[in-house]
Simulated scan of single mutants.
Amino acid sequence: MLELTMTEHPLIPLLVEALRELPDVHADVERRALSGEHPDRGPDAEVDLHVAGKSLTMLVEAKKTVYPRDVRQVIWQIRDASRAWSSSHAGDVVSLIAAESISPGAKELLRSEGVGYYDTGGSLYLPAPGIYLYIDKPPPKALVKSIRTLFSGRRAQVLHALLVQHQAWFGVTELAQLAQVSPATTSQVLTELERFDWLTSKGQGPSKQRKLREPAALLDAWAKQVKLDRAPALRRYYVPATKPDALATRVAEALEGRGVDYAISHEAAAQRLAPFLSSVSQVRLRLLPGQAAESALADLDARTVTEGANLAVIETKSAGELLFRERQEGLWLASPIQIYLDLLRGEGRSKEMAEHFRKERIGF
């Protein structure tokens, strides 16, 4: 571990060691103070950097986490330090932000502004006169876990509500009621979304309202997470003596006859809202499990199979997974957002259908 005089921030030694591991790169922490009469305004470290015979000074600002919302302020701070350094020193200088985790959106913004970064996942970006270093590694585990949590369970219900009503302004209580979660959970989700700079707000305190400013960015992030997650387990059945185009109606009648809440999704739902395939041979739906559901399946003479299924059931963990379903032609269909995300998990041409469906039905 390096002995630091400017700062004891643990990220600085990690950054320096990461640089030293690269071919023909030498890095050392400068031992003198930077910030003069304003020590609280200076960067956290000054690193002497030598890359393939090229020398320059790297000013490092250390942060715990960096999200898009943080980038503007951090860039202002580090560029102010760079100007202060250049006014009293000769030679080239480059700015870099070191953080435990930096969100993908924040990394993109930093690259567009020509500001370097390093995170504990091993990602490194350093643009400088005559030097260009770029290493892209998976995000640190802490950030991955944080993002996965945001797109699962009750928190996902808040995201779902915002996307379905993406043009509306919401207070915390109103949004919590719509998403069927607690105000505390809703407030936590909104705080996270503000970090990603996906919300706009108005008002203060209890009367503060928020609106989704970047619905496409939020849906893109959710789609990316869906592709990484394990697909929910399916119970596969064969319902005899039923033509494909009549299967959805027959299944719906059986479920509704037993009072079972359900929502048809995947291709069978997408085809009704934005036709894409010539035919759909399987119905996939979500339903609340229980004796009533089992009785409805028995009414259909549905037989458990491993191949040749024409009905697939996703058992929901809560009624929240059926939020925002829509009544269409006598059937309960999942919300367009849910249909799109489910299609991304499908096989065959479902991913093509997902993009068609998003363009034609969702629109962002």
Rank of each mutant, 00 (worst) to 15 (best):
L4E: 10
E8N: 14
P10Q: 04
L14S: 10
V16K: 02
A18F: 07
A27V: 07
V29H: 03
A33P: 11
S35Y: 10
P39F: 10
D40P: 01
R41N: 09
E46M: 14
V47D: 00
V47Q: 02
V47R: 01
G53W: 02
V60R: 00
D70S: 08
V71F: 08
Q77W: 07
R79C: 05
D80L: 12
A81D: 08
S82K: 13
R83K: 12
A84K: 12
H89M: 06
V94S: 09
V94P: 02
A99W: 01
E100V: 13
Y118P: 01
T120E: 10
Y132F: 13
R148Q: 13
G153W: 01
L163R: 00
V164A: 08
Q167A: 14
A168N: 14
V172M: 01
V172C: 02
L175K: 05
L178F: 05
S182E: 06
P183H: 03
T186M: 01
G205H: 05
L212C: 11
L218R: 01
L219K: 04
A223Q: 06
Q225Y: 03
V226F: 05
V226E: 14
K227L: 15
K227Q: 15
R230E: 15
A231G: 06
Y238Q: 14
V239L: 07
L247W: 03
G257A: 07
Y262C: 08
A263R: 04
S265L: 14
A270K: 01
R272C: 03
L273T: 07
L273H: 04
L285R: 07
R286T: 11
L288N: 07
E294G: 11
A296M: 06
L300A: 00
A302Y: 00
T304E: 13
E307P: 03
G308Q: 10
N310D: 09
V313L: 15
I314K: 02
S318N: 12
G320M: 02
L322N: 06
Q328P: 03
W332E: 04
S335F: 06
P336W: 05
Q338W: 02
I339E: 00
L341Q: 00
R345I: 04
G346H: 00
G348R: 10
S350L: 03
K351R: 15
